[in-house]
């Protein structure tokens, strides 16, 4: 068990090291999401009522669309360099490779959110630095990483991968996006944990289901 966790952490840590050096993924994800936020602040009359109404949707749509860009890049680098095959040569089960790559993607999207969410709070003039936001953000990022890593692996060998990934990813994460938007909406309107409980439960169920199923499917995707 500890050996498996060490392998997963080593893959995630390696992705983080490469990202610190290249800044390919976090800059793309955060930059894209910030652009979406800024465009919407110009497009919508952001009085307090409007901000609470549309803000959560804008935030999570921005992060979801931006996340696709980053997920694509994170896996493409592994395939272009042939290093995915080097990982496959190692005596580790394929699901550990999946979990390691998903951990890396989780870290990228989480770092991007650390940049994006404060900017969102300022632009939309909403109070978001609350424990509820941390829970929503963590649950959503786990789901995005779980689904995104699987579909990035599926689409990376396809010629039109830039088109394929969003077509696969966005419909599948729609329930998770709904949970994130609804629970964020409850939070900015000052409601309690119990009001958002059903949406958080949906997010937890989504995460558990997709981490387990994706880890299983991933090993079949890797084979020729």
């Amino acid at each position: 068990m500890m050996g498996s966790l060490a392998v997963i952490w080593a893959i995630g840590r390696k992705d983080l090291l490469l990202e610190i050096r290249n800044k390919d993924v976090v800059v793309a994800v955060a930059g894209f999401a910030l652009l979406v936020l800024v465009i919407f602040t110009f497009a919508i009359d952001l009085n307090q009522g409007n901000a609470k109404l549309v803000g959560p949707g804008v935030l999570w749509a921005g992060i979801a669309f931006a996340g696709v860009t980053g997920l694509n890049r994170a896996f493409a680098l592994e395939v272009e360099g042939g290093t995915l095959e080097a990982l496959m040569l190692a005596p580790i089960s394929r699901d550990l490779i999946y979990l390691g790559k998903a951990l890396g993607n989780f870290l990228f999207i989480a770092v991007a959110q650390i940049i994006v969410i404060p900017v969102f709070a300022v632009l939309f003039n909403l109070v978001v630095f609350r424990w509820e936001m941390l829970a929503i953000s963590l649950l959503t990022t786990v789901g995005f990483s779980a689904v995104g890593t699987l579909f990035a692996a599926m689409s990376v060998k396809v010629r039109a991968r830039e088109v394929m990934l969003p077509l696969l990813f966005l419909p599948v994460v729609t329930p998770l996006l709904m949970a994130a938007v609804e629970s964020t909406g409850h939070m900015v309107n000052g409601r309690s944990w119990s009001d958002m409980a059903q949406w958080l439960q949906l997010a937890v169920a989504f995460d558990v289901a997709f981490v387990v199923v994706s880890a299983f499917i991933f090993q079949h995707i890797l084979e020729d």
Partner: peptide, 28 residues
């Protein structure tokens, strides 16, 4: 088994030492 195939299959932006230490972890 140990394999050297056509492509070196290394992380270009990591040093030689970092590559080898990373793969040593993969081989536990």
């Amino acid at each position: 088994t140990g394999s050297v195939l056509h492509s070196p299959m290394l992380y270009a932006d990591m040093t030689v030492r970092e590559n080898l230490m990373f793969f040593a972890e993969m081989y536990r």
